[in-house]
């Protein structure tokens, strides 16, 4: 299929029936079953902090008893963070149960957050505005020092969004 240019004006779009307009407008609503919401539910449940620490260790390992120490270090390269993100995507696709899937999703978000916080770089195709909102939600739910990392990442995503030319 040849690439077709995206419409530049509303006039170039196919006509919209009220039903189609309504269906499309509903896509603007936030989804309650997005990965971040399920993740928040798990982190905020009983033993959530313990689950979080064991999930970080399972995905990123630990150093001197500190789960995910490498992820928290600004010295970790962008290439390494990209690799982790890809590995987490693969882990999520292969997950045999919800808990494994949530661990992989947590790893994915933390890798994206570390890239934003340490390198001001977006390593996901998601819009910066969406990443900013997602990371801010997570920042409010996880323990220190991760909440600091996620808050910084969220601020940097916001800054990248406002720098985006119209």
């Amino acid at each position: 299929m040849k690439d077709k240019p995206s419409p530049k004006t509303a006039g170039e779009l196919p006509s919209l029936t009220p039903t189609m307009a309504s269906r499309l407008l509903r896509l603007g609503l936030s989804e309650s079953d997005q990965p971040v919401d399920l993740l928040l539910e798990r982190v905020q449940a009983a033993e959530g902090a313990r689950w979080f620490a064991s999930a970080v260790t399972a995905v990123f390992g630990e150093s001197a008893g500190r789960p995910g120490a490498e992820l928290l270090s600004p010295a970790t390269t962008l290439a390494r963070l990209r690799l982790w993100k890809r590995q987490c995507t693969a882990l999520a696709e292969q997950a045999a149960d919800q808990d494994s899937w949530l661990q992989a999703m947590l790893g994915y978000f933390l890798a994206v957050a570390a890239a934003l916080a340490h390198h001001q770089a977006m390593i996901t195709d998601r819009p910066p505005g969406e990443a900013q909102a997602t990371l801010a939600k997570l920042a409010a739910a996880v323990p220190l020092p991760w909440s600091n990392l996620l808050s910084q990442a969220s601020r940097n995503a916001r800054s990248l969004e406002t720098q985006t030319p119209p």
């Binding site: 995206s6 530049k8 004006t9 509303a10 779009l13 919209l16 307009a21 499309l24 407008l25």
Partner: peptide, 20 residues
Amino acid sequence: RACMATIVRQALVDAGRECE
């Protein structure tokens, strides 16, 4: 209804441009 249609159409234009 007209408002709903124009908002959706403008969002389609904006999102299409951004993706491109």
